[in-house]
Write a protein that binds this DNA or RNA. Structure first.
Lengths: 180, 180
DNA sequence: ACGTTATAAAACATTTTGTTCGATTTCTAT
DNA sequence: ATAGAAATCGAACAAAATGTTTTATAACGT
């Protein structure tokens, strides 16, 4: 990828991130984004179809890092094998999310939050079913799984949006206690 | 209130509700709303400042009914007295929400969902703290309360959005099992 | 150093928004 | 029933935002 493209892409991402902390996604105009990012109008549209597209791209971008590139580098995470510890797994994800705190905060805010959480839940669908399956409850599995995923996503949101100073270990233990 | 005002207000609410099931809040134009509602442009703006205002008004409108007018008519709900049963309380709320299923479904959908859930959680803040206070967990009260409220809101969303045919009693028991 | 490709800047058509005004209909109170 | 008040319609309008196109310039990779 061309250096210039990387630069503009990054500039737009950062500008967008900053603006999201200041105001709602729906009230942000393309004009404001390109002013903050200091790029031309046509350049924006060369990279993204619409503002929605920008948001979606940013979501996949972040989660791609958190769930694949970062996590995959560490060897100790084979979800499928028997002795695997769910709480440890959660803690690891929290560490990687913590590293992206700055980028994440804006995305959690009001309008964009809905889209962002949708993506987040999508990625959690890959990790959580194997754990939720072990909980034997009277409620339908479908319900328990959905709730477990939502609860984790909300836990992270509460942590990041509220600037809570808990460590990943603490937060993971609170979460585990809550869903147990 | 003038009959004409009631009629247009209702027509706009219904049109909006129908459109929300078809497409995202942010992609709905005022033009589409007034076409569907069959009212003039100036009439729309006589009732609501903006599309956002319409959404907010509709949210408060619904919850006002569900949490005050409907619930207050029944005598058996004194949250403060000692023998009060949380699960019964939940069940009651679910009954009233069920009556508004049609109106609610659109509001839960993507873009509007974030605003709607915010209002929903706001109303739950009045009911839930007294219950969440009784759960003694290691996690901060603030966290447990937030999670309990979110979990209930998500439970309702899952129920309504997914057209699940569980009775309020069933759903309440699933929820109670989940948070216990 | 060369051809290629991204960007900037400005101009533009289009869409959506929100306002205004006069004519018309519908309400309420008497 | 009727007169006065109030809400609606519809059309026209200004303002703002979107998305596209063009050309010249600058930065890139080989």
């Amino acid at each position: 990828m061309d250096r210039r493209q990387q630069k503009t892409r990054q500039a737009i991402f950062e500008a967008f991130s900053i603006l999201l902390e200041r105001k709602n996604f729906s009230n942000i105009t393309v004009q404001e984004i390109i002013d903050e990012a200091n790029v031309g109008r046509s350049t924006f549209y060369a990279h993204f179809e619409t503002k929605d597209d920008l948001l979606k791209t940013m979501c996949t971008d972040i989660f791609q890092h958190v769930f694949y590139e970062d996590l995959k580098q560490e060897s100790s995470h084979d979800f499928s094998h028997a002795g695997h510890d769910f709480e440890k797994e959660i803690t690891h994800i929290l560490y990687h999310l913590q590293d992206n705190r700055k980028k994440l905060k804006g995305l959690f805010s009001c309008d964009s939050g809905e889209i962002f959480m949708k993506y987040f839940r999508g990625y959690l669908q890959e990790t959580f079913p194997s754990y939720a399956g072990k909980l034997h409850q009277k409620a339908p599995f479908e319900y328990v799984l959905n709730m477990t995923i939502c609860s984790f996503a909300e836990t992270v949101r509460w942590w990041i949006s509220g600037d809570k100073d808990y460590t990943p270990e603490q937060l993971a233990s609170y979460f585990m206690e809550y869903i147990s």
